[in-house]
Write a protein that binds this DNA or RNA. Structure first.
Length: 385
DNA sequence: TCTGGGGTCCTTTATCGG
DNA sequence: TCTGCCGATAAAGGACCC
């Protein structure tokens, strides 16, 4: 397997610079309101000189660089640029897994037979993307997804890093644990507490140490990855399995009527997405974030999929009530999500339509839904190697 | 004064019927 | 009749990613 990871450089910021060239020489931050609760989505390289990076609060970014230019993200514009980038890429490497607007994996093995050719392909992709969209990207090329992913980040912006076969483990060994995809803040803290600072040190962990530090299947997967073992293929199917909308308030909210209003508005948006994609949902989830940042969710499942905003709103508000009676308090965020999606036209199937009246035919316990596996038919996307 | 929004996947816990 | 166990599923929470 020869796989490349492609990552567009400071994508949102780069697009904004193309749309308004006067921004090119200024520190630019794409993100939320610097006077509110927003965070940085992307900063251009000029802004990064001030120590500004993704996920930092905009207020902090403003403090670090008071003359920075702040712009709100314009996702529809980025989607258009992204589409044209990936069209260009597919012109050279047809088999592609997009993992975000600005990154994805390329099955270079389909068009190159060795790593020398692979580098040439990567250069061709880079050149074509620049010519077609005026955007720059970085690529990593290796025998696996993990290694390519880490490699693509190494010589940003505009770099290409090729990791030849058999050198993967040595390549990974010196990187900080946090560079390994799958190691987040929690795993990082546990590893560091045990003196594990590098990916190489994860690779060298004994079975007992591993079980203690990273319990469950996660540990084994991460150690394999740390060794450069990663047999994941490209995932070509892109079916969504949930749809959600959430919002953080400018100021924390306790007023129930205001929360209901917000949920109704969100339910309408979710329902709109559902109908657009001609799908229905069996499960509705309400999400709450309290002032201490802890998250609670309550969900309920129906026997029949729905796409009506009124029904979704009613369920979402009921779930909010349940959550708030379990744990009262001011909220900084609420959200509405749906899952258990299926194609709209399934509603017309005779076997299901007899139940479509909405009246439970018997006892009506939630377990009556047991006959249907909400997870049946969902895209199986595994971490397992 | 901190810390968005939209996702996915995994694990643990509650519940239910046999 | 009471109790415990088992397996399945739904719900909830947690971690992670861009």
């Amino acid at each position: 397997m020869i796989v490349a990871h492609l990552d567009l450089d400071a994508f949102f910021a780069a697009v904004e610079e193309l749309e308004d060239p006067t921004l090119r020489t200024k520190p630019l931050i794409v993100g939320g309101d610097p006077h509110g609760r927003g965070v940085v989505a992307t900063a251009n390289y000029e802004a990064r000189k001030f120590g500004i990076h993704s996920a930092m609060s905009c207020a902090e970014a403003l403090r670090r660089c008071p003359h920075a230019v702040f712009v709100r993200p314009r996702h529809s514009v980025y989607r258009d640029y992204s589409r044209s980038v990936w069209d260009t890429v597919r012109g050279i490497v047809p088999t592609v897994e997009r993992t975000g607007l600005d990154e994805g994996y390329l099955d270079v093995g389909k068009v190159a037979s060795d790593f020398l050719q692979a580098r040439t392909i990567a250069e061709a992709v880079q050149t074509a993307v620049r010519a077609g969209t005026r955007l720059t990207c970085s690529l990593g090329v290796s025998t696996s997804k993990v290694v390519s992913k880490i490699a693509s980040d190494l010589r940003k912006p505009g770099g290409i890093v090729v990791v030849p076969p058999k050198t993967e483990a040595a390549f990974l060994a010196e990187f900080d644990v946090r560079k390994l995809p799958g190691v987040g803040p929690k795993a990082e803290a546990r590893l560091r507490a045990a003196g594990v600072q590098t990916i190489g040190a994860i690779a060298a962990l004994s079975d007992t140490e591993l079980k203690r530090l990273l319990p469950g299947s996660v540990g084994r997967v991460l150690r394999d990855r740390a060794c450069g073992i990663d047999h994941r293929e490209l995932e070509l199917s892109t079916e969504r399995i949930s749809i959600s909308v959430e919002n953080t308030f400018e100021r924390d909210v306790t007023d129930r009527a205001k929360l209901y209003d917000e949920l109704r508005w969100m339910a309408a948006r979710v329902a709109g997405h559902l109908r657009e994609s001609r799908r229905t949902a069996r499960t509705v989830t309400t999400k709450l974030r309290y002032t201490d940042f802890s998250i609670r969710s309550r969900s309920t499942s129906l026997r029949i999929g729905i796409d009506d905003e009124g029904e979704i709103a009613e369920l979402a508000c009921g779930l909010l009530d349940r959550a708030l009676s379990d744990r009262p308090g001011a909220l900084r965020l609420v959200g509405v999500g749906v899952s258990g999606l299926s194609d709209h036209r399934q509603l017309a199937f005779p076997a299901l339509s007899e139940n479509a009246s909405g009246h439970p035919s018997n006892g009506g316990s939630p377990a009556a839904a047991t006959g249907v596996d909400s997870r049946a038919g969902r895209a199986t996307r595994k971490l397992r190697s």
